[in-house]
Structures are given as C-alpha cells and as structure tokens.
C-alpha cells in the first residue's frame, strides 16, 4: 500500500473502523513510513486539542433536561390513565408523593440522576470501551483548573479510596458543568470519582445511589457544603455508596 492509499484510509483508521486486511496494511505501512506515522500522530493530536477546547466551552444542558423530564412525566401521566385500576392506585400514590416533594425538586432530582448516569456513561466510554491512552486535557490545564477550583492542597490524598492508587485525572463535562474526573485503580478495577468545583456546588446536602447505572456499573452522587461529586465503579465490586458517603461527610 502506498502513502496516498494510506492517507485515504487514515480517517477510518483514526475512528477505529478499519478492520481486516485494510487495518493490517495501514499498520504495516505506518511502521515503515515515518511521514505517514507523523501525519497520523498529528491528526490524532489535532482531534484531541479540538475536543479539549470544545468540551471546555460546553453549554449548560440542565435546563433542557428539566424540560424533557417534565414533558416525559406529563406525557406519561396521560397515557397511564388508560391502564388498569391496580396500576392507577400506584399512580395515585405517586402523584401524591410528587405533589408532596414538589414538582421542581422532583425534576431537579431527575437531573441529578441524569448527571450520575452521564458520569457512568463517561466512565464506560473512556475507560471500558475506548481506553484512551492519553486524556484530552493537557496536564497544564488540569493543574490550573485544580489550583483555581479546589482549595485543598491535599485533595488527591484525601479522596483516594482505601487500597487504591491514583492513576489519572482530566476535566470533563457532565450536563454542561465542568467536572474533574479522577481515576483510581485497585488491581484490575477502576473507580472514577467526578468532583465539581467549590464555586459550582450547591449547599444542600443531598445524595443519590444508582444500584444499576447501566453498563454493569453503579453510581453514587453526593453534595456537601463545598463539593458535589459522583463515584462510579463496577457493580458490586466498588463500594461507591461508602466512598460517596465518606467524601460527602468530609467536605
């Protein structure tokens, strides 16, 4: 395969969609051709830089999510009026519960759940599926962010789960809010801790636990006076609830 053919296939190679003979041919060529290897590396780095920049500037999606949850609920109520009386009893009980809690807090909680699921999704995409060798954010950006947003110098030591080792950190965006995503490792098990900076945390002490956050993961969110976060790990293997409780009580 010559350089021109390889250049044509590089977009597919970069997106991980090249398979079989095409993949083998490109890999073979790149090992021998420094120019194509450099071109591939430059494209990959360009994508990383662009992704980093665009995600840093992501819009806040929480307002849309609240509206969607509200519409889903409203639509659901209408449809459920046609179901059998036994389910109507449960429906009535739920209506009372929602009325007591207040619709706005109910929707806010839905957003909290969505954030926890987004965190689980992020963990799954980046750590399980793609296994990014290098994270999008440059070390300088992370250092600046940590210094500006988290006042505790000993933060890393404090949040490290018992028996785990810190592996990496990056900035990520969940529902329009910027989080620091820390990864800790215990043997083959990875635990993600997402922390929202001080300035953006609400002052209500709240928590949520999703025993099933999809992808075989569980997630626990917490909110304390100075910090909010989500802990994600393999279902039944990482004690996300305990870690979240410890962190929530600590800050």
């Amino acid at each position: 395969m010559n350089c021109e053919s390889v250049q044509d296939l590089l977009p597919l190679y970069l997106s991980g969609e090249l398979t079989g003979e095409g993949l083998a041919a490109v890999q073979h060529h790149i090992k021998a051709c420094e120019a194509c290897a450099q071109s591939l590396s430059a494209d990959r780095q360009l994508d990383d830089v662009l992704r980093t920049a665009m995600l840093e500037h992501s819009p806040d999606v929480s307002a849309v999510l609240q509206r969607v949850h509200g519409k889903m609920a409203t639509s659901g109520w209408k449809r459920m009026l046609h179901v059998r009386s036994l389910r109507l009893a449960a429906l009535a009980a739920m209506v009372v519960l929602v009325a007591v809690l207040g619709v706005s807090s109910f929707r806010a909680r839905q957003v909290q759940r969505t954030t926890a699921m987004a965190a689980a999704n992020d963990h799954y995409s980046d750590l399980v599926l793609l296994r990014h060798p290098d994270w999008a954010y440059q070390p300088d950006d992370v250092a600046r962010f940590m210094l500006e947003e988290f006042s505790r110098q000993d933060l890393l030591a404090v949040i490290t789960p018992q028996g785990a080792v810190f592996e990496k950190v990056r900035l990520c965006n969940l529902g329009g809010t910027q989080y620091a995503h820390f990864v800790f490792r215990t043997g083959a098990t990875e635990t993600s801790i997402f922390l929202i900076p001080n300035g953006q945390a609400g002052n209500k002490r709240e928590s949520i636990h999703l025993a099933d956050a999809g992808h075989g993961l569980e997630a626990s969110g917490f909110s304390s006076e100075h910090l909010s976060g989500v802990v994600v790990g393999d279902k039944g293997q990482v004690q996300t609830q305990e870690i979240a409780k410890r962190l929530g009580g600590m800050f």
């Binding site: 969505t114 699921m117 987004a118 965006n173 529902g175 999809g214």
Partner: peptide, 8 residues
C-alpha cells in the same frame, strides 16, 4: 441510561 447522557 443510554439516551439522556448525550444531551450535552
């Protein structure tokens, strides 16, 4: 689980 996390 699979759809709403992509809202952003």
């Amino acid at each position: 689980t699979v759809a709403l996390p992509h809202a952003g």
